[in-house]
């Protein structure tokens, strides 16, 4: 029997998406760093291998992204992502206050999780920006670099490939930073491992947050 405290937050398709996505993006980050800072004398992965791995994982993450995109359009999971503009800043402020001081004073979280609310405002905003801005941006610039002939040659005498590559690397960096924070914030719970169990088995212990 599932206890009353547990909510089925992460349906199976979402968990599959998340697993593939996490693996893919980790590989992309490692190989991406390896390429950007490649050096004849030293390298985690052989450059040629890094390029191939990066291309394959990039395509995998791209296809997988469609799962996330259409999964959210077709199922009720999208309701957790609805963002009310009004008072947003204030709600974010409340959540930041909680993370920076409230939680150390054993205060209750300002946005307790429930059937209706899977994410606190900070999660919502960061997931939205990452999933609907950064990742699509990476996918588009990445595909362009895979088919460089599609890139406009010059934008006001600046190389199009150059701009695309810089944008791609910068977005990759932002996603890396997101990942670090994402992992850390996920460890905030009743028990640091709770949320990681949830994203694997689907059930979330609401007393955990």
């Amino acid at each position: 029997m599932i206890s009353e405290n547990k909510i089925y937050f992460y349906p199976i398709w979402l968990r599959i998406w998340h697993g593939i996505n996490a693996m893919g993006i980790l590989i992309l980050i490692v190989t991406g760093i390896n390429m950007q800072f490649s050096n004849p004398k030293f390298g985690l992965v052989n450059f040629e291998l890094a390029v191939n791995l990066h291309n394959i994982s990039g395509i995998l993450v791209t296809i997988n992204y469609l799962l996330f995109f259409f999964g959210n359009i077709l199922t009720s999971n999208k309701r957790y992502y609805r963002l009310k503009r009004k008072g947003l800043f204030k709600r974010l402020q409340l959540q930041v206050d909680y993370y920076t001081s409230g939680m150390f004073k054993n205060q209750q979280p300002p946005f307790p999780l429930s059937e209706k609310r899977k994410f606190n405002p900070m999660q919502k905003v960061s997931y939205l920006t990452v999933m609907y801005l950064f990742v699509p941006g990476l996918v588009i610039t990445g595909l362009a670099l895979l088919f460089p002939e599609t890139i406009i040659e010059n934008v006001y005498s600046v190389s199009g490939i150059f701009l695309t590559a810089i944008l791609h690397a910068s977005l990759g960096f932002l996603v890396s930073i997101f990942l670090i924070i994402h992992l850390y914030v996920a460890s905030i719970g009743k028990n640091p491992l709770n949320n990681f169990k949830s994203i694997i088995n689907g059930y979330h212990d609401i007393h955990g947050h």
Partner: peptide
């Protein structure tokens, strides 16, 4: 050079400010 010459070689371009900022 790189901007004017339409080419970007992966790994060869490292911008001091961008690197340090990141």
């Amino acid at each position: 050079t790189i901007i004017a010459n339409k080419s970007y070689v992966i790994g060869a371009y490292q911008n001091f400010w961008l690197n340090n900022f990141s």
